[in-house]
């Protein structure tokens, strides 16, 4: 059973207020002199994503058995099954609807869906956002400006922005 922790709301008197002002200004000055930056400069640097990152989907047509389960489970109705010339049904993904929940990845018992680390994608128009099966299979065009990736690490409560060299994000996350 948790205990009760009753806090006292301070009502600072005059010397305490002066101290508060000085402390606030002191903290500001300290940060001004020794800045602790946490932001990354996005197009030049990119945050290192964890291996289980839920990015765009990668599809492996050879493993798919057209079981329709991914389309059935998709919460956003982003997956539609389209009939291919060979008579089988294959999924298409509408990225206008997809919410990157990766239920489809977890649903597919054959492992036909895989996650990738792409997340900053641009489509020319709304129609393009519907990736048909052929488009899904085609490797995406990658244009990158970044030279390094940044990883947040901590040592004894201090943030260390670890810089990694150019990271390959075209590969699917590890299984």
């Amino acid at each position: 059973m948790p205990g009760i922790y009753r806090i006292k709301v301070p009502s600072p008197d005059f010397p305490r207020r002066v101290k508060g002002h000085l402390e606030a200004i002191g903290t500001g000055l300290k940060e001004l002199i020794v800045p602790n930056r946490v932001t990354t400069q996005y197009p030049r640097e990119r945050r290192k994503l964890s291996d289980n990152f839920r990015g765009m989907l990668q599809y492996d047509i050879d493993k798919c058995i057209s079981c329709f389960q991914c389309a059935f489970a998709c919460p956003a109705n982003a997956i539609v099954m389209k009939k291919a010339p060979n008579g089988k049904y294959y999924p298409c993904v509408n990225y206008a609807k997809c919410i990157f929940c990766h239920f489809c990845v977890d649903v597919c018992s054959k492992g036909a869906w895989k996650a990738s680390k792409f997340m900053d994608v641009a489509f020319p128009d709304m129609e393009e956002m519907l990736l048909t099966t052929e488009k899904l299979l085609r490797p995406p065009e990658v244009e990158r400006e970044d030279e390094r990736s940044v990883e947040y690490e901590f040592r004894a409560g201090k943030l260390i922005m670890k810089k990694h060299p150019f990271e390959d994000i075209t590969q699917a996350g590890k299984d």
Binding site: G28, E31, L32, P35, N36, R37, V38, T39, Q41
Partner: peptide
């Protein structure tokens, strides 16, 4: 720029 420095950012660059 100063505000950005105190606020752990870079500011206009």
């Amino acid at each position: 720029k100063m505000t950005a420095k105190v606020q752990w950012r870079y500011g206009p660059l």
